[in-house]
Design a protein around this nucleic acid. Sequence first.
DNA 1: CGCAAGTGAGACATGAATGTCTCACAAGGA
DNA 2: TCCTTGTGAGACATTCATGTCTCACTTGCG
Lengths: 192, 192
Amino acid sequence: MSHLRYCCLMAVDREHVLRSAAALLTRKSTATMDEVAKAAGISRATLHRQFAGRDALVRALEALGIEECEAALDAARLGDGTAQEAVRRLVGELERSAGLLAFLYTENQLFEGDGQHEGWARIDVRVAALFRRGQESGEFRIDLTPAWLTEALYGLMASASWAVTEGRVAAKDFHHMIVELLLGGALRREEP
Amino acid sequence: MSHLRYCCLMAVDREHVLRSAAALLTRKSTATMDEVAKAAGISRATLHRQFAGRDALVRALEALGIEECEAALDAARLGDGTAQEAVRRLVGELERSAGLLAFLYTENQLFEGDGQHEGWARIDVRVAALFRRGQESGEFRIDLTPAWLTEALYGLMASASWAVTEGRVAAKDFHHMIVELLLGGALRREEP
DNA sequence: CGCAAGTGAGACATGAATGTCTCACAAGGA
DNA sequence: TCCTTGTGAGACATTCATGTCTCACTTGCG
């Protein structure tokens, strides 16, 4: 009978371990299981008891990232108001997960086609649909495909996340930099 | 007396090896030295005779990337015409190196602060100076810092490179997608 | 007070990539 | 033809992350 009660100090909060691992791997994607364990304040043995191996850990992080992404998509209410407003809300909701997403984004690049998690496809569809809505409403230009705008959003978020980490961009500017570049571009708009 | 003449078939063209390695590592950044050697059509022993180790190979690729970047910067004549035109030329010149640059871009993320190649700093300065020039001439908006625009350029090029590799974006649209998003953004411009 | 459960520390084996070495072979030059 | 040079193939030791195991310790509970 597996009652999920805490027994001892039970520092082994699965959630806490995942958060620590995400924070560490975001900074150093090649960190060892030993380093991950130390970062979480547990021993390597305990880490192994929770996640069968490095693969399982990364998969769990991927699931966490997808979960947070979909939560952000829900919270951003992509169908409300103009598409532009929805994009702004979406970036705001995704900001807290940016580090984890940046890690997963590059991690996925080296999963050479052995099939990635279906969750990403679901997310891609929803984001692309938002851009498509903006195109159909006349807000967004139609020469940039929704697929590319989606990809660009991911890329800009990852770039911004690293730029903030390395101090090249102020953390408080994260949202503004991404949204303004993605929506408005670098060119100065002529005053109407 | 080391005369640099060819002796046998001399399939070991250092340039060719680097190109092959770049092409392979761009697709699979975790490729083995053995795989790199096979991709170049040489044995692992010969590969090792040219590059002391994996580190040396990556360093050589980094040097190649920097070299191509600076060549692109030169060819783009960043000082000529408007900054906008210069950005368009720059992306065009960088397109052929996009895969290699994308590989090096992510590779650098896991060099946790142990000092990266000075060449990148030189390139950063030149690109940032271009964006600064655009700001001072009134072409570019001033609320997006040159450092961020530089970072965004790298990020968009890497994203576009992957998107093309995975078939989500047509290769022929590479230049247009990057330049238009970076300069104009997703929002439709009001017709003047 | 014991018992059960979970943990930390560490030993140990495994597998993979790496780096080093030797040896035989092919090709060009004297 | 002989010698030099560079190469391919393979054996070998090494390193490192990983996965598995044991054992002692601590804590909560009956």
